[in-house]
């Protein structure tokens, strides 16, 4: 079964077609990005562009994109951002949804909100069909969180976000970017800040920006030094304590369980069950959670090591 929904920020699709003792359902969020070149004015090979695209700000030297450099940059952007965010979280399924079982005939069947069906996902079993509960094993899959970033041709339209990109001259080391304006160095790891011991904290800007595109806020938003009603781009919002600075939504590269929120919200919307603000609903883990048997569900066991199933 595939359930899908479209939101202004991204698309979400839940795929429960594959279900067995070791295989979870998959929830894929898809970001359709349109990248647009910013080139020197007048078709020249070199030129200048202002930080943040603001004519009142500092200019940086830029060079014209070539077909090769443009394609390579986009490939690197998509591949490295996907590698960072894709497949990192698992959500614990605390609802009796999407369960599957191997019946005495050795056939995998799946339980859905509207009935049960065989493994192939095509033909429905007759209404009222029940497997023999005394001999069958029913598994409740968890949710594996996936991210797909689609580099969608700008001419096609239908993007969730359009991002302008400047190619910096080799003499430049920095450009003032924001969520919709990147530079060619934004995929590189750079020193973003330092911790309380003076050690550098490194970050690749584009993975931070992808977090924003998924709806994530800066790490300290909601704390007294970064109230939600204030400017949530204030420096304190990027973390004051070292542990917060290290977050990818701060100054560093670390993933946190709170970063699974876009997937948790999507599961609530797709399943119609739970509340993303309730910690026990679709609870996130940074380790694979194996599908559970009823007794394991009853004790809320989190199976992070591969269980021995018959």
């Amino acid at each position: 079964m595939k359930l899908a929904m479209s939101l202004p920020q991204f698309e979400a699709e839940l795929n429960t077609d594959r279900c067995d003792a070791y295989t979870n359902a998959e929830l894929t969020l898809t970001l359709k990005l349109g990248f647009r070149q910013i080139n020197p004015a007048g078709g020249t090979a070199e030129g200048a562009y202002h930080d943040y695209g603001d004519p009142a700000e500092t200019t940086r030297k830029i060079v014209k994109w070539t077909t090769g450099s443009w394609n390579l940059w986009k490939q690197n952007f998509v591949a490295s951002a996907t590698r960072f965010w894709n497949g990192k979280f698992w959500l614990s399924n605390n609802f009796p949804l999407y369960e599957c079982e191997k019946n005495p005939l050795g056939i995998w069947i799946q339980h859905n909100p509207v009935g049960i069906r065989p493994w192939d996902g095509k033909s429905w079993l007759p209404a009222g069909f029940r497997a023999d509960d005394s001999t069958s094993l029913r598994y409740r899959p968890n949710i594996w969180c996936l991210l797909k970033i689609e580099d969608r041709d700008i001419k096609l339209g239908g993007h969730h976000h359009v991002i302008d990109v400047v190619r910096l001259h080799k003499s430049e080391t920095w450009f003032g970017s924001h969520a919709k304006l990147y530079d060619s160095l934004d995929i590189n790891s750079v020193k973003k800040g330092r911790n309380s011991k003076g050690k550098p904290i490194m970050q690749r800007a584009h993975v931070h920006e992808i977090g924003h595109l998924l709806g994530l806020a800066h790490v300290d938003v909601g704390k007294p030094h970064c109230p939600p009603g204030g400017d949530t781009n204030a420096s304190n919002c990027y973390g004051v304590a070292d542990v917060d600075k290290y977050s990818v939504m701060g100054q560093g590269m670390q993933l946190r369980l709170s970063h699974a929120m876009p997937w948790r919200k999507a599961m609530v919307a797709l399943s119609g069950k739970g509340n993303a603000l309730a910690t026990g609903d679709w609870e996130a883990k940074l380790q694979k959670l194996y599908p559970r048997l009823p007794a394991e569900v009853a004790t809320n066991a989190m199976l992070t090591t591969r269980p021995n199933r018959k």
Binding site: W174, G193, Q251
Partner: peptide, 26 residues
């Protein structure tokens, strides 16, 4: 937050007051 573009402006607000602008991502 020593990354970013460094000091982009120093503006005198009054005889004894100055504002320093530091360019950062976003």
């Amino acid at each position: 937050q020593v990354g970013g573009g460094g000091i982009s402006a120093i503006k005198q607000n009054s005889t004894t007051s100055f504002t320093v602008s530091i360019a950062q991502e976003e």
